[in-house]
């Protein structure tokens, strides 16, 4: 059974297939509107989410399937103490595919180890978020035209930012990527990302604290939110939350064709005035998220685009 727990569960060829399929869906969504007819997606969200859950649900509905699930732990048997493994075993009886978000790292893997339907990790604590990674890859490929030979700046909370960890893990598999890691000392990328991913893959990277000095060389700027929910200590959160704020003034230092990405939600790390800048792509990025999830679910469920009838041939009514 194929699951998506870690972004590296997919080979580069499989990622390419998913991104190409997503591009085909964008070009002709009507052709896919009944592909998943009769299929059910279970969204098991133990943590609040807007984009990820709704984009999964919209993706399945747009494929002609339906959706069941819950949107918080309080609305599930988890509030009665049911284990993740047991919940997954039950849901397997009702659904064809699971998308799970959980505050504990590794929870979707536990689900995957206990069921025979595909499980998608929709974010596990501060660990990984592979479908956001696919979204980011599709955005970069669509907007920058390539996934290699790019200088990419990651800015903000690089310690707890699961989207950052997942994307670095994935991009380090492509050639010619130069990573610029912009964060305060306390929120630097964990050592294992540096030692076992960047160093191991011979990726070029640098760590800096000042955004302005590096803005001018970036092809992509990936902004992140400092996440209150990841801190055990509120005082640390308050001290660090406003370290980087991207403004139009700062963007004067950036390349004209910079692409600004953000996994959202944003708090105040990108000033609202930046939204009007053509380089701001984060809302478009959220839209790509639905298409890439459609393609991913098709792939995991083994669904194919229906054959179109050859020209001149009439189909039976």
């Amino acid at each position: 059974m194929k699951h998506l727990i870690d972004p590296t569960d997919l080979s580069l060829e499989e990622i390419d297939e998913i991104l190409t399929l997503a591009e085909d869906i964008i070009a002709d969504p009507a052709a896919y509107s009944e592909v998943a007819k009769g299929k059910k997606l279970a969204t098991l969200f133990y943590e609040p989410s807007t984009r990820t859950r709704l984009s999964f649900e919209a993706a399945m509905i747009d494929l002609g399937g339906s959706v069941i699930g819950f949107s918080s732990a309080q609305n599930s048997s988890a509030s009665k103490g049911e284990s993740v493994a047991d919940t997954a075993r039950i849901v397997e009886k009702y659904a064809d595919i699971i998308a799970m978000r959980h505050p504990k790292e590794g929870a979707p893997l536990v689900a995957a180890m206990n069921v025979n339907i595909p499980v998608i990790n929709a974010g596990d604590g501060g660990h990984l978020h592979p479908t956001q990674t696919l979204t980011d890859l599709l955005t970069i490929r669509e907007e920058a035209g390539r996934l290699n030979h790019l200088t990419i700046g990651f800015c903000g909370d690089l310690k707890f930012g699961r989207t950052v960890h997942s994307l670095i893990k994935q991009l380090s598999r492509y050639s010619g990527i130069h990573f610029v890691l912009i964060s305060p000392q306390e929120l630097r990328v964990p050592d294992y990302i540096k030692d076992e991913i960047l160093v191991k893959n011979h990726a070029e990277f640098e760590e800096v604290e000042d955004m302005e000095t590096v803005l001018g060389k970036l092809d992509i700027l990936y902004m992140t939110r400092v996440q209150r929910e990841r801190f055990f200590n509120e005082a640390d959160y308050i001290r660090l939350k406003d370290t980087y704020i991207l403004t139009e003034e700062k963007l004067k230092l950036a390349l004209k064709d910079l692409k600004i990405l953000h996994p959202l939600p944003r708090v105040n790390e990108i000033a609202v005035e930046v939204d009007k800048d053509p380089r701001a792509l984060y809302f478009k990025q959220a839209e790509y998220g639905k298409f890439v999830r459609m393609a991913l679910m098709m792939k995991l469920l083994g669904l194919k685009k229906p054959e179109t009838a050859p020209e001149g041939e009439t189909t039976a009514c």
Partner: peptide, 13 residues
């Protein structure tokens, strides 16, 4: 020993 890991709460893992 990661308090955020699922092994810290899920029984029997």
């Amino acid at each position: 020993r990661n308090p955020r890991c699922i092994t810290s709460t899920e029984q029997g893992l």
